[in-house]
Design a binder for these strands. Structure first.
Lengths: 349, 349
DNA sequence: GATTAGCACTCAACGATCAAGAGTGCTAAC
DNA sequence: GTTAGCACTCTTGATCGTTGAGTGCTAATC
């Protein structure tokens, strides 16, 4: 249990260290305004805090640095979220969101960019999940005699397109007929149910209409894969190179391990989902709380955005554990609300 | 004018330096097999080469390093392109291309990935340009009473989609009617001509049918922007963090300047296009030959891929000036041919 | 009993100095 | 024309004080 004074000191150390990236000494805390204590007293308290695991010392005779547990305590108990963003910042952000952007991917991309420029960290936006959405319409646009673009539009307005080619003995007309049938049967069905539906209800009917059962199966498979292929929400990054601004990543090895991870969108997507599509509207993972080894020195703060009540996507910030948690949380909170408003208006309005 | 011996020495220095990243001394050249000369002789020749600007010395008593001019000479005259890729490499690549991938964006993304893993440099793929293509079909899929997804499919099978919302006093039926009209008038027209066409031919007719001229204009504008919005080909990157493998980018500052540039897809796209949509099938830009300051230490090698004879996209490799030009050129050559074959078969077959 | 001044101690960071080694340029001999 | 030899240059790495920030402890003070 921490005394009020210890909490105050811990908070000061965290905030000082976040700014300076240098171990914090007792003197600099003591000199702080509204702290009427001598360095010696602070030293005693610091020794206590270290003993309890909230602080660490890089080496004897260096100042103290918050431990993972220290950050955790800071985030859970010392953060004053009452503080709002500064008005001038809010108005800056408002401008960004008032720009008319009318394609969901652009919005996601832009949001990632803004998040990163606002925080000076790396931002991630996970585009709306189409997996849970229902199919609104299936369209086929012929290109040549034996290939066509298949378009699947979901209830959230996401479009997936895929070029499919089909064998010589299947005519375009047959494919169009098939697509008509699929439309009849599948519109309104959640995409994740689609595969089972096709096999249960549709295969038989298709086979009856198309005579050659095996051929029908093959075509169906191809169409199906076009629809459900992109079940992973797309990942949009902003300010990846901001990572390099942080002194903890001046070591190229460390930088590379994080940046490489960011290149693997599937992994990033997984990490974000795992974390955030749960219940809490906002999640903070500090250092080792991330399972991935390349994120041991990083913190990942994420928030969901929703359509109505259903979470459909995630926005997040990745930075060093030495992160401005307060600011990041406030910015994410703001952006997630804006995003929620935007997509809600957009897709259900 | 370089003697045969000087050429040989220059080639050895370039190739040695490319491998080692260390200045090359006279001794190591002299010890090379099939080089029956002493270090002293090499030194003389090296001094000559330096005087003529092909080599540089980081400092007295260091070995020599190729200058930009040296690399240029190497690429233009000393590269033995007769050498083919090793059979085992070719077969590896063949495997990659034989995988069925059936969406152009995936192909581009994958190609970028393969290029980068094959070369250990950073790869860029510029997706097929839709700007010169003609419109094949315009589709509208309603989402709510006052918003819809507009789909434009081009002659190369590229799909652009955009969510448009329209004011209360315009009904969905009217928009659908408008889209029918646009389809009639615009299919087969190159996209770059679209804006003028709309204003010349269509506006009047639309106004006649829709009564309210101004309103019609507004809707038209919105539809139009949906169609021609993405005139920039999309940029796909692979192995951006490979940049950090190179010793010349162990300095975080330099790394950051290049990586940040790579984040700005519009700039990358511009650089690639400027370079490569011209006549030559393959282009090599060494160091300062790039205008951009962040690319002064980089070389950019690009190749186009085509549909039939028309170049529609660019693939490229970005690495340090100290680059394995021979290998990179061979790999790019191979990939561009595969890409050409792929998209040609795909879109015009 | 809590606080603080004082002091000895520790350790990273920095700079100076030095030796080793790689590489050059020049000269004279082959 | 080529090469051996040698003096010279310059980087690299190691060693070694010195400095300074910061600590922990003790004893004095409030």
């Amino acid at each position: 249990m921490l005394s009020e004074r210890q909490k105050m000191i811990l908070r000061m150390i965290v905030e000082d260290y976040v700014q300076s990236a240098e171990p914090v000494g007792s003197r600099s805390i003591s000199k702080h305004v509204d702290m009427g204590l001598s360095a010696a007293t602070i030293r005693n308290e610091m020794a206590d805090l270290e003993e309890q695991g909230y602080l660490e010392q890089p080496h004897t005779s260096a100042g103290r640095v918050p431990s993972q547990q220290g950050y955790r305590y800071y985030v859970d108990h010392l953060l004053q979220l009452g503080e709002r963003l500064k008005p001038e910042e809010i108005s800056k952000m408002k401008v960004l969101f008032s720009e008319r952007v009318d394609e969901i991917e652009k919005v996601a991309q832009q949001t990632a960019l803004y998040l990163s420029t606002f925080t000076q960290y790396t931002a991630v936006v996970l585009g709306p999940q189409v997996y849970d959405n229902t199919l609104r319409s299936l369209q086929v646009v012929p290109i040549t005699e034996h290939s066509a673009v298949l378009l699947a539009v979901t209830s959230t307005g996401q479009v997936q397109n895929k070029t499919v080619s089909f064998p010589d003995d299947i005519s375009l007309a047959q494919v169009e007929q098939l697509v008509r049938l699929l439309n009849e049967k599948l519109v309104g069905i959640p995409i994740y149910q689609m595969r089972s539906r096709i096999f249960e209800e549709i295969s038989r009917e298709v086979a009856r209409q198309m005579k050659d059962f095996e051929e029908a199966q093959r075509i169906l498979d191809r169409l199906l894969s076009a629809i459900v292929a992109e079940k992973d929400g797309k990942v949009f990054l902003g300010g990846t190179t901001n990572m390099l601004l942080q002194p903890e990543f001046h070591n190229v090895e460390k930088a590379k391990s994080v940046l490489s991870w960011l290149e693997h969108h599937d992994l990033v997507s997984k990490a974000l989902l795992q974390e955030s599509m749960t219940s809490a509207p906002l999640s903070v993972r500090i250092g080792g709380e991330n399972e991935l080894s390349m994120l041991q020195n990083c913190s990942l703060v994420t928030a969901t955005y929703r359509i109505g009540e259903d979470p459909v996507g995630v926005i997040g910030i990745i930075g060093p554990t030495r992160m401005e948690y307060g600011r990041v949380i406030r910015v994410l909170d703001y952006f997630s609300k804006e995003m929620t408003q935007l997509v809600t208006k957009w897709y259900s309005g």
